[in-house]
Amino acid sequence: MTYLHQTLSEQLRIGEHEIERRKIYMGFTDEDVKALKDALPWVEPLVPDLVDQFYVLQTAIPEISLVIGDRETLSNLHSSMNQYILDLFSGQYHFDYVDKRLRIGKVHQRIGVSPKLYLSGINQLQLLLEDLIDDNAEFQGIDGRLLKRAVRKLLYFDNQFVFDTYIAALQSEVEAVNTQLEAYASRLEMQVAQRTKELTELSMRDPMTNLYNQRAFYDQLEKGGALAERNNGFFCVLYLDVNHFKTVNDTYGHKMGDQVLIAVAMAINETVRKSETAARYGGDEFCIILPSTKVENLAFYCERLFAEFDKLKPLDVTLSVGGAEVSPQSGYDVEALIVRADKQMYLAKKRAHESKTHELMVEV
């Protein structure tokens, strides 16, 4: 619900029934109303002098003087206080009167008047009004004690509503802070989740090539093998090795060896699809998981891989690749699959030693 067109009383859900109930709490009776209303004619001309006295006393307090700030604000406060005192003796203490009290509280809270300063001011006003009544009671022929008691009850009645606005403002501030904290906590939670995801991903990566490491490779291998078995499908692994890699390190240094490994990783990344997983298995050995792939399709795949590597390699080195598959015929033992692919890779390496070219050997 929007508050734009509601009075403060409506916003704080203070209706006539609540107002009457609070009067009962204060013992504020029709007798008090009559005493206040009857005093208005002789009080009214004395109000301006009383307001002047009030602000002389108030501005002598440094904290209050600092809040008031300038002459224009002081003039406005004089006018407002003059009207407030007249309202005290109006005899009308219903919805409109309460709404004015709430607005007074709202204004004081907004300009930074703390509860202690507000109560200090109300106490000062009560003392001045009581002095005014004492000075004029005999002359006006009134029961000064009754009138002072009525003023005191009404000021306490007013203070309830003023502090309702202070409390409402504090609740709004708390709610706003809570909303900010919840938003911050949500953002922090998202950042932690994202960072956790990033760190998890980093823990699964080989730092040099940015391919998956051996641990992550086996996780993907087991998942892929299980999926293939459930679907009664095919699943291949390629096992790669750089030929004469030790000679490269010994001849050109380990930095050049690293460049060769990075070139292999880049060639693999250019070749694999999103559904496929590539990993640095260890040293100069790499593995690629090819879901839903039959062994007879590996030659075409490797032709692309070899072509990409030839474009990127810093030295004239070649690759040996072994391939094997799991299938309904061969079974779904993924541990054995790696051994079988590794065996084919060593057969390819023997052939590469003679041909000095890239070689692929697969199970027939």
Rank of each mutant, 00 (worst) to 15 (best):
K223H: 13
A226G: 02
Y346K: 01
I289Y: 06
K34D: 02
Q160C: 11
L40M: 07
E63P: 00
L146A: 14
V264M: 01
E325D: 08
K197W: 08
T73V: 14
Q191N: 05
E173G: 07
E16A: 15
N213M: 13
M361D: 04
P314K: 04
D206Y: 05
G257H: 09
K116V: 11
T29S: 13
R215V: 13
A35C: 00
S355E: 12
T29M: 01
L238T: 06
E270G: 06
D134R: 10
E229I: 05
T2L: 11
I64L: 14
Y3H: 12
L312H: 03
Q191Y: 07
K349F: 07
F300K: 13
M208W: 05
A348Y: 01
A193R: 13
S203E: 08
L127F: 08
D164T: 00
Q259V: 01
M190H: 15
F245S: 11
K356D: 14
D143K: 09
M266R: 11
F161N: 01
Q53Y: 02
S327A: 09
A307M: 10
V260N: 08
Q214A: 15
G322D: 01
V33P: 02
E201T: 03
A137H: 10
T251K: 15
A265C: 08
V295G: 09
E189V: 01
E138G: 10
I14N: 08
Y346H: 07
L125V: 03
T277F: 15
A183F: 08
L36G: 10
Y93E: 03
E285Y: 08
Q171P: 00
